[in-house]
Write a protein that binds this DNA or RNA. Structure first.
Lengths: 344, 344
DNA sequence: CGACGCTGTGAAAGCGCTCTATTGGACGCC
DNA sequence: GGCGTCCAATAGAGCGCTTTCACAGCGTCG
């Protein structure tokens, strides 16, 4: 942990390791990348020399020649919404992104690839594009919620391998992973109907986000098109105020589908405020099955999407694209399931 | 946005720009790093050539020679606690880290330095250390909560510039930024007493976290040492269960200091569950002044720490250390203030 | 008017690594 | 015993950039 020549850490180079082991630089390189065949004796000698000198490869030099950085970016592009001090606040408050990070990190580790988390809003797309162009990363996992976000197209134009976390809004020839949003919403509607709810309503996400629009569509496909809907912004507070609006206009509703667990948590608060019992007076179903679902009272019945698995799949796809540059894009759609707890 | 020679992006090099501008590579380099003096005419010609070819410097080649990466890591080291699916869930659920990221990013931007967010738990300290040793970053902003976390010492041993987000537990000669935790807790205690509360109690953070222990100490220094305390884990649920324990044992308490807003939010739920009105029956004060404080009902009176400013200061210190390698460590302590809302 | 600074530009030497082409040596075969 | 074969290891050529150093041009001053 401390085998530096001087203080302060001028790192030893490969030449010094080679000298210490009595071999050439090329052989040291082979040992490190355990490529080709190296005689066991020599290999050991080199390993000893490495630990003895405390050698660590210089990534800059390496990636200069290999043209790889062995890291990929997880770009989280959140639109600037009014009423929202900082997009970073939203990102570091919504359990979704933690799940994505966890799933991707796990899938990347066996490949010795690092994950660089890059949060961004519209204001610094430019920064992000520059970052990507500079070759810091070999590929991009892109979470871009808004339909009008130009980032997916920009990244694609850059020619850098990318995988999206949801169906791209335009016809972009790019790989993506998504959950069958409509189906998830249908599951919710069916469950509410089966429970005997007569007056359904829903709190959707922003309609410029595909996940927002799709969940609304799916719900209405089963529950009936005229079903009342209010739009939330995928935050707890947004869910709460949307629920209040809904209850103002439709006091009699007895079944509520909320397009995210976070919003559902807010909705539960609104219901409680107004003295509605859940699920007796109003049955509530969320979406995500995030940690928030378990923190709710009562625990939330919700549509589960396997976010960690999906993120891992994204990572796999990305690795494949990086290894095989010409590879044609593909999409992987996961099926959501209904997790029944106490709220419906 | 699309000036590539072929498809797929073999990037133009500096030589090609030089050729296009009719100058030497050295001159192009000077223009890009706007160093030394370049004749205005030539400068323009080079700029034109750059935009025309769509040239972007190769970071690997650059940092190979400059020995800088122009990026720093924000390492968030969270201990593995039982009962916690993933440390990433905690990180991406607590508004604190978003504030730090925002503050640091803002301060780093003018220096054209990137922030790489690196979440870690005890299990992959090794990974992180390797990442740092490989020279991916020029310095480290380190948020390490647990007192027993070996990471600060390890990072320091690496000889890489670092700034901690709190007083280091041992005598580590390293710069750090902190808030006067004890003082903040005293403010809370004084306010509760001034309000006329007779029976105080507190929910502290884990005592192996300096911020946890210090806030408890500060509170007791004013409120009296025998003041009942329960330990939470800085999560909402942790605050809720701690509050229940507290109320079981001390049903008569009328003033509660909770060591974080997130935990306070949980405590409010517990109080509500038991029919205690806030602030009439029990006055509650949180700590942080995070977004959670405003989401609470009633809005939370809380001890504000200027996290964004503190993170910016950390970034400044780090930049200074990077520029001046021998610079002696220093610590900056911010003063917390009491933000009075409705809960106390 | 020649010496002297100054400013602006170019040539070339690396930074530390990977990887191709090549050598050296051990071995088997005729 | 000479020769081809094969494998292990080396020499060396870059990757794309920064940066010293040298030098050319030119205004200034003794």
């Amino acid at each position: 942990m401390s085998a530096k020549s001087g203080r302060g850490g001028h790192h030893p180079t490969m030449d010094q390791v080679a000298a210490a082991a009595g071999v050439s630089r090329a052989t040291v390189s082979r040992v490190i990348n355990n490529a080709a065949s190296v005689a066991p004796g020599i290999r050991d000698a080199v390993q000893r020399a490495i630990t003895q000198t405390g050698y660590v490869p210089n990534v800059a030099a390496r990636s200069l020649v290999t043209r790889r950085s062995d890291s990929v970016a997880l770009v989280i592009s959140e639109p600037d919404r009014p009423d929202d001090h900082s997009f970073l606040n939203r990102i570091f408050t919504d359990p979704y992104f933690g799940r994505v990070t966890a799933g991707a990190t796990g899938a990347l580790r066996p490949h010795d690839v690092h994950l660089v988390v890059v949060p961004t809003d519209a204001d610094d797309h430019h920064q992000v594009v520059r970052y990507l162009r500079q070759g810091h990363v070999d590929g991009v996992l892109l979470i871009s919620s808004s339909e009008h976000d130009p980032l997916p197209a920009q990244v694609h134009a850059l020619g850098i391998p990318a995988v999206l976390a949801s169906r791209p809004s335009g016809p972009l020839p790019v790989s993506y992973v998504d959950v069958d949003q409509r189906h998830g919403a249908r599951l919710a509607a069916e469950h509410l109907l089966a429970r005997g709810c007569r007056s359904l309503a829903t709190i959707s996400g922003p309609l410029d986000i595909p996940a927002g629009a799709d969940r609304l569509d799916g719900f209405r496909a089963v529950a009936g098109a005229p079903v009342p809907a209010e739009i939330g912004d995928f935050t707890r507070v947004g869910g709460e105020t949307a629920a209040h609006r809904l209850l103002d206009q439709h006091p009699g509703l007895d079944g509520l589908f909320v397009a995210s667990d976070l919003m559902a948590e807010g909705a539960l608060r609104a219901l409680q405020d107004r003295g509605r019992r859940v699920p007796d007076d109003v049955a509530v179903i969320g979406f995500d099955d995030s940690s928030a679902a378990l923190e709710c009272r009562p625990p939330l019945t919700t549509v589960r999407q396997p976010v960690e698995e999906m993120a891992a799949e994204m990572a796999q796809l990305l690795i494949a694209h990086i290894h095989t540059p010409g590879r044609s894009p593909r999409s992987v759609i996961f099926q959501p399931t209904l997790v029944i707890r106490d709220s419906a």
